[in-house]
């Protein structure tokens, strides 16, 4: 447990020492969302209709971009060997990496998301649910993304490959999260969607450690 905690602290420290990485992801989040406004047009009704979907799709892509280096940077400098050879279980260390990734990427995205939602004219009654879906859904993005990041360590074509692996796995998160916000805006209960979103998170939590740890062991053979 101490090993996992030390890994979280180390990754947070690394992120704090190079804040440009997190800021770049945040800038991508805002700029990509802005592009949608240019693509769709400035009419508030048109934007409001798709605001939830845009915020979620862009958050998902921002999360994906940040995952590219999650394990590749460890492999490049040789730290991956030390992680795989640690006496602690590699599955636990994978979860520590995911937690640090979530804290340094997803959490800032969630903080910024109301600004993006405002720019996209999200109806007022949707904000609380949007934040709730982001809190419940982004852990699944980090977890499934970690599987893809671990599988593509050492691959010849990094980023696009990661997207191809991970994006299909992200579909349920996107569907349940957007459905919850839209139900809330339409005056319906978002609860069934939120439960499904949370359930999917638990599912991601159960399979990620094993799949990602297996992939990392393969990568360090």
């Amino acid at each position: 447990m101490n090993a996992a905690l030390a890994l979280v602290v180390r990754d947070l420290r690394l992120a704090l020492r190079t804040p440009a990485e997190t800021l770049t992801i945040l800038a991508f989040f805002v700029i990509a969302a802005t592009l949608f406004a240019f693509g769709i047009g400035p009419e508030p009704q048109a934007l409001a209709r798709v605001a939830t979907g845009i915020v979620w799709v862009v958050a998902l892509l921002a999360c994906l971009i940040s995952l590219d280096r999650l394990f590749q940077s460890e492999a490049d400098d040789g730290s991956l060997d030390q992680l795989v050879l640690a006496p602690a279980s590699l599955e636990l260390l994978v979860l520590a990496k995911c937690l640090a990734q979530w804290l340094t990427t997803a959490l800032p995205l969630i903080v910024v998301s109301p600004i993006v939602a405002t720019m996209l004219q999200l109806p007022a009654q949707g904000y609380a649910t949007l934040l709730l879906t982001l809190l419940l859904g982004t852990p699944s993005l980090s977890l499934f993304g970690a599987i893809g990041a671990a599988l593509s360590v050492g691959a010849r074509k990094g980023g696009a490959l990661l997207a191809l692996i991970v994006l299909p796995l992200y579909i349920p998160v996107l569907i349940f999260a957007v459905a919850a916000v839209e139900a809330q805006i339409a005056g319906l209960s978002p609860r069934p969607h939120l439960f499904l979103l949370a359930g999917f998170g638990v599912f991601a939590l159960t399979i990620t450690p094993f799949a990602a740890a297996a992939a990392l062991r393969q990568a360090s053979e």
Partner: peptide, 29 residues
């Protein structure tokens, strides 16, 4: 029971040497 020093140094550019070694010690219990 093993300590493995590969041909790579496993150093992060922004971490100090003391931080590296403290992390390594914690990682290995």
């Amino acid at each position: 029971r093993l300590a493995f020093i590969a041909h790579t140094d496993a150093l992060k550019p922004t971490l100090t040497l003391a931080e590296h070694l403290h992390f390594h010690a914690a990682l290995r219990g």
